[in-house]
């Protein structure tokens, strides 16, 4: 699994005492946006079989943003692979250092590390809030999650929120022409990982 928000979410749900399956479902739901990125990238990258299987691993907010910001196809392909490989290397290096370093920490709370994930999620969320609709959804999701939290097993509030968004997203009238939903465009230049 190489997709930051999903990784954080899976660990977060398990850390809060939730079942690994609730965590896995949340991680997968957060990963659905990568399928849209893939649709946008597939014509650009071409390739089948092994190459496509390798490219899939590098489909990220960052690599998609860098690729679609180029003017020519060769530039786009270069940007995709360079960004993908760079983020992959540094991300996993950082993860490994973090995993080893935890053994040196007696109480993560002293360093405020329990406050770090929400700050990270906020940094991931902020660039997606540039319109009124996502802002309303974010607020509603936060309230709904908090309201259900005391009464259901850990991790389940997230799945309730996901179900709610699917119902809202599919039942509202299609987005108007004046406000196109550019789903395959990640927030360019955002610090999303």
């Amino acid at each position: 699994m190489f997709t930051g928000a999903s990784q954080f979410a899976l660990v977060g749900v398990i850390g809060a005492g939730g079942s690994v399956w609730a965590g896995a479902a949340t991680a997968a739901l957060l990963g659905t946006r990568n399928a849209l990125y893939g649709v946008r990238l597939s014509s650009l990258l071409g390739g089948r079989g092994l190459k496509s299987a390798l490219a899939a691993h590098f489909v990220l907010d960052e690599s998609t943003a860098m690729a679609i910001a180029r003017d020519s196809e060769p530039d786009s392909r270069y940007a995709f692979w360079a960004t993908g490989v760079a983020v992959f290397t540094l991300w996993n290096l950082g993860t490994a250092i973090g995993a080893l370093a935890t053994h040196a920490l007696s109480n993560p709370k002293v360093l405020g590390l329990d406050a770090a994930p929400p700050a990270a999620f906020l940094a991931l969320l902020a660039p997606r809030l540039r319109a009124r609709e996502p802002m309303a959804i974010a607020l509603l999701a936060a309230v709904v999650a908090i309201v259900f939290l005391p009464f259901v097993p850990a991790g389940i509030p997230l799945l309730i929120v996901a179900a709610m968004v699917v119902v809202i997203g599919l039942s509202l009238p299609a987005p108007r022409g004046g406000q196109p939903v550019r789903a395959a465009d990640p927030p360019v230049g955002s610090p999303t990982k």
Binding site: A16, T32, R33, F121, L125, I137, A141, V144
Partner: peptide, 15 residues
Amino acid sequence: VQLLPVALLAALIAT
């Protein structure tokens, strides 16, 4: 699909 990460990230922050 675009709203899902928005909602899930907001819910994660809140909880």
